[in-house]
Write a protein that binds this DNA or RNA. Sequence first.
DNA 1: TTATTGGGCAACTTAAGGGTTGCTTATCTG
DNA 2: CAGATAAGCAACCCTTAAGTTGCCCAATAA
Lengths: 117, 117
Amino acid sequence: MLNPDVGKSGAGWADPAPIFAALGDRTRLSLLMKLSDGDARSIAKLSTDTLLTRQAITKHLRVLEGAGLVASLRVGRESRFAARRETIDEARAYLDRVSGHWDDALARLKTFVEPAG
Amino acid sequence: MLNPDVGKSGAGWADPAPIFAALGDRTRLSLLMKLSDGDARSIAKLSTDTLLTRQAITKHLRVLEGAGLVASLRVGRESRFAARRETIDEARAYLDRVSGHWDDALARLKTFVEPAG
DNA sequence: TTATTGGGCAACTTAAGGGTTGCTTATCTG
DNA sequence: CAGATAAGCAACCCTTAAGTTGCCCAATAA
């Protein structure tokens, strides 16, 4: 399948937690890194240079796919995976929201000791 | 404790997976959101408007702290937590790296069907 | 000083995650 | 066609994660 919509839906916002959860694994991050040039690769190719079995890699790829971070397409006898920038950008946008709302470190230190206000 | 260094270390790069793993939970994201104004809040305050017990919230906060996403400081009888922008930005920077390396969607579709090259 | 409120600690249950092995199916190559 | 290569499926470990309950301790407020 070329894609489940894990993306944005009009007005409200989808829960980004599953995206971050998918990113929260060393193996999956390194898979995403390999795919970070935009090219698609087969499972076999993605399984080289790793200690894990092909099945393990497959599972990780499916997790990434479930989160919308990669898309897969079967061509011939192989399954090719490619990174999906949209979802990565969605995660970035979320981090922007939680990061962009306050100013300097000094102000933060103050708030530790100030009354609960 | 005001924080263990989960941050960058000179030349190489720390593994960002634990950061994303910490972000990969709805409850923790909502906690971070509450803290996204830069102010510190007590556990009690952060436990209001949630169905979970205070203990559960505490655990989540400790997970966030372990990942460096928040810092805590005990003042009087309460533990105040505040978000740490550095770590959030670290996660953003990582996403920049995996996202910033290819161009348009069309090119990506091509790579699905092209020979493995 | 006695309640009350904010938190820490520990034990325990349930469910999910990461990984493996074994076997089967489909595709490509000689 | 025979053999090799790419992958899917399913069952099965083992460990960690999320959440709960119960109890105890420290700081504040009446």
